[in-house]
């Protein structure tokens, strides 16, 4: 299993416990309400994959039967199913267009009956792992602008992070480790600039140029070189002065 698959498996296993987590469900309901206001759409739902591989509604902006039916239908077909499968957003789907709705005719018919004319589905994704989809409906024939689409994706990401937050994931620790490694590496580089600049009585920019040149000509990683310099394994005299 790849890391993403393991993440997905962990989230899917967690679906049953998630619905009992009132803090999370409260937060997601609030998020749905906020989506309505921020994006000026008519209805919103958060759907995540269950252990059977099907999408399940976990929170919605309202609980009208007609809306809930639309989410339930997407066990089998609908924009969220496609979005979840492909990991790509499906925006501005004209529910009145037979061409655009040909992959999901039953869903489109029900959606029109419920009074909706436009739908959007955004992937809930952490890197390559898609854990679900954010589904938006509009009763008015209006499209999301590119800026609206960025907001919608940010909100889908918020839902993803909120759901993942309730899990203990080795995966997340790996991402923190990656960030820590990046920051630590950068700190080492800055410290080494200072060490070399002081020894040579030059500026830090000259020191950096020399470090970069030395790393390149000796086929060393810059971080590795800086670590060696700081730990005294490498004499600064070994580095060519600018």
């Amino acid at each position: 299993m790849t890391r993403e698959e393991r993440l997905l498996a962990a989230v899917i296993d967690a679906v049953d416990t998630l619905v009992d987590d009132f803090d999370l469900i409260d937060f997601l309901h609030m998020l749905c309400d906020r989506c309505l206001e921020l994006l000026d759409v008519s209805a919103v739902g958060v759907m995540i994959e269950d252990p059977g591989g099907r999408l399940q509604l976990i929170a919605a902006s309202d609980e009208h039967t007609r809306l809930l039916e639309l989410f339930a239908l997407q066990h089998d077909e609908g924009p969220c199913v496609e979005c979840h499968r492909s990991g790509a957003a499906r925006l501005n789907i004209d529910l009145t267009s037979p061409v655009q709705t040909s992959p999901f005719p039953v869903f489109a018919g029900r959606a029109r009956k419920a009074g909706f004319v436009v739908s959007h589905a955004l992937p809930m994704r952490l890197r390559e792992a898609v854990i679900g989809a954010l589904n938006l409906f509009d009763a008015r024939p209006q499209n999301l602008s590119p800026a609206d689409a960025r907001v919608a994706q940010a909100l889908a990401d918020v839902a993803t992070i909120a759901i993942l937050q309730h899990r203990t994931l080795a995966h997340a620790n790996q991402q923190r480790a990656q960030m820590h490694a990046a920051l630590t590496s950068r700190i080492l580089i800055e410290q080494a600039k200072g060490v070399l600049a002081e020894r040579w009585n030059t500026g830090v920019d000259d020191a950096f140029d020399a470090l970069r040149r030395h790393a390149r000509s000796h086929q060393l990683g810059l971080t590795q070189l800086c670590r060696q310099l700081i730990e005294g394994q490498l004499d600064s005299e070994a580095i060519a002065r600018p």
Binding site: R34, A147, R150, A154
Partner: peptide, 15 residues
Amino acid sequence: MVPKGDLAAVLASLL
């Protein structure tokens, strides 16, 4: 269509 409200503007420009 411009996003509604300040929070939308923040989210739209976060990246």
